[in-house]
Design a protein around this nucleic acid. Structure first.
Length: 593
RNA sequence: GGUCCCAUAGCUCAACUGGAUAGAGCAACGGUUUUCUAAACCGUAGGUCCUUGGUUCGAGCCCAAGUGGGACUACCA
């Protein structure tokens, strides 16, 4: 329990009451910056108005009070409006003793918060393989789920597969026309790639037809609607909706290929789901709710028969929720599925959608509509909006082939990991299987860390010409440090039997303990903000500091037995903290590398 | 046209949500290994935090205007 802040809060509160007879001033402590002496800092500018004293005076008053009245506080200094407070070494040692052998350091007990969250992520289309943009979605979604679990929430990971619609029919039609019965087995292609190939073929042929029509004098818009291929695809969609056996069988067959392909990619990425939804089952949901909304006058019928909602008062536009022919649009089914999920899971407190920021507007509208329909939980719906992954030349576009394919990238990373490891030549006694496992761990560590270290909200750049690094601020650096600690521990007997009573630790050791102390708050903050990058950057800070420690001080060769034991325990606790932090990111750490 | 997002070192990203002298990695340059894993460590160099005004004890962060970039604004999904 964030014990240090607790002590400071209470002591300072009492002090202010006694010194100035003031109550309920908001106190906020921050970590003291490295350049200054101290552990925590109280900013005293905030109290100048109430106390009518200078910030320096206030700092000195409170500081003196703390020294006199709180035995755990041993020193203070004042710089301008900053009161820097130092806690005793005993306090930090006690803290360390209390957590050092705790495997779940920083994490709350599973399901202890009483809050249940459904987190939807991944949500692929079944007409093409996954690319780097999807990878970011999967990694962010999975990591946020891990972090929310770490914060004690119950998390249901959900995936809604976009398995129907005109885009699926495009692949199907192209395969029918030009596929010659090709299968994943006959072609040696991964199922999702095979289907994606025909999606691209469709687009190429479709563009040809458009061009021909334009040459015959049609406008581009007319040509896009008149091209025989698109008309055929639309007919196929109608047949699918009517349950036409031939179309449905083809659809099942090709979707099956895609699912097999996705399963491989998901396994590589290390992501999984508790609940699968399929749009082919849910796309009709929401229609009857439109009737309900009409009766409540939340929606209105337009002259042409379509149904809409007016959100101009909210700063949004008018939005169609049902077409004039009575069929639904995308948001209709989103309304339906949201309601369905809260019915299916009555204990649900929150619904999180991991979807790119290009859909910010869509979700604003969706949540507003749900709110207007009177659902109390509407305000607990949250769009976990992440930025696009861009290439140096701009956004990735599937149809134009300017995408970084997920499987290709994963394979490349694997090869780089293998090559780098072989060059370093430290794995002579690994078996073949152990090596493969190690390359997987390192390559995915590099890829995942690369993506998760940046704030999900921001767009990020990926340059395929520059391979993802294995040195510096990277996943492998953290993994290496973990393995390094394990290597030291393997050489001796680590035991926590006796508590350390008195150890005078050096500056870096104290900083390490303080940093370990920060982990719990870091996890809480990351959970509050749905932001894995906070955990990623924390892990890096701890790693860097540990390496400095490792370089400057001996552990096994230390002659003073007490210090040796302390350093060993401290190293272990660092490794455990790194393990937990990386686990929140979905990154494995190797025992040796 | 309207709405929203973004702009920090040559490049990729931080900055604990308004606090102290804006930090890392990569790239460049120099150094460290008979010692627990050199995927490491130490050092040098690199900044008009897009611009201009405002708010305040204090602004990279808040407000206003401008510049540049992006997304959205379908009876597509």
């Amino acid at each position: 329990m964030i014990i240090a802040e607790h002590i400071l809060q209470n002591a300072v509160k009492k002090g202010i009451t006694q010194l100035y007879n003031l109550n309920n001033l908001p106190l906020s402590f921050q970590k003291t910056r490295k350049e200054f002496e101290g552990d925590f800092t109280l900013v005293t500018f905030a109290f100048t108005k109430e106390t009518k004293k200078s910030p320096e005076q206030i700092g000195n008053d409170i500081g003196a009070y703390l020294i006199a009245n709180e035995p755990q506080i041993v020193a203070f200094n004042v710089v301008k409006g900053f009161l820097n407070i130092t806690l005793s070494d005993t306090f930090w040692l006690n803290y360390f003793n209390s957590i050092k052998s705790n495997a779940t350091i920083g994490l709350k007990n599973p399901n202890s918060s009483g809050k249940t969250v459904m987190l939807e992520y991944s949500s692929p289309n079944t007409n093409k393989p996954l690319h780097l943009g999807h990878v970011r979605n999967n990694l962010v979604g999975y990591s946020v789920a891990q972090i929310l679990k770490g914060a004690g929430h119950t998390v249901i990971k959900a995936n809604i597969i976009n398995d129907r619609g005109i885009h699926i029919c495009k692949s199907m039609l192209a395969w029918q026309k030009w596929g010659n019965g090709e299968t994943p087995e006959s072609s040696g292609l991964k199922g999702d790639h095979l289907v994606g190939k025909y999606y691209v073929i469709f687009d190429k042929e479709y563009k040809k037809q458009i061009e021909e029509l334009v040459n015959k004098g049609k406008t581009k818009e007319e040509a896009e609607k008149l091209a025989p291929l698109i008309i055929e695809a639309q007919q196929m969609l109608l047949k699918w909706e009517a349950g036409d056996k031939e179309v449905v069988d083809l659809w099942k067959k090709m979707n099956g290929w895609v699912y097999n392909g996705f399963a491989v990619t998901y396994k590589s990425l290390g992501v999984d789901f508790d609940k699968m939804y399929y749009e082919s089952n849910t796309y009709l949901l929401g229609k009857e709710l439109v009737q309900e909304g009409l009766q409540k006058n939340i929606f209105y019928k337009k002259e042409n028969g379509s149904v809409a909602i007016d959100l101009t008062a909210e700063g949004l536009d008018e939005k169609i929720v049902l077409r004039s022919d009575g069929t639904s649009v995308y948001i209709t089914q989103d309304i339906g599925t949201a309601i369905e999920r809260f019915k299916e899971f009555p204990q649900l407190n929150q619904l999180i959608y991991t979807v790119g920021n290009e859909q910010d507007y869509h979700f604003k509208v969706l949540f507003k509509i749900l709110e207007k329909l009177g659902y109390q939980w509407a305000k607990e719906c949250y769009h976990l909006s992440y930025g696009m992954v861009e290439l140096p030349e701009g956004k990735m576009k599937s149809r134009e082939g300017t995408v970084v394919d997920a499987d290709d990238l994963i394979n490349e990373m694997f090869n780089t990991a293998q090559q780098t490891t072989e060059e370093l030549g430290k794995v002579a006694n690994f078996t073949e299987d152990e090596l493969k496992e190690l390359y997987r761990t390192i390559s995915m560590g590099a890829l995942k860390y690369f993506i998760l270290k940046v704030d999900p909200k921001k767009k990020m750049l990926f340059d395929p010409k520059e391979s993802i690094d294995f040195n510096g601020h990277t996943g492998p650096f953290i993994q290496y440090t973990y393995a390094r600690i394990k290597s030291v521990i393997r050489k001796t007997d680590l035991n926590f039997d006796t508590q350390l009573q008195t150890v005078s630790f050096n500056q870096i050791e104290k900083e390490l303990i303080k940093l370990i102390y920060d982990f719990e708050g870091t996890v809480e903050e990351a959970a509050k903000l749905y932001n894995p990058s906070i955990v990623a950057n924390y892990a890096y800070e701890l790693t860097k500091l540990y390496n400095r420690f490792y370089h400057e001080f001996n552990i096994l060769k230390e002659e003073d037995e007490t210090i040796k034991r302390f350093r060993l325990q401290l190293s272990f606790t660092c490794s455990q903290t790194l393990y937990n932090a990386m686990n929140l990111l979905g990154i494995n750490v190797p025992e040796r590398m």
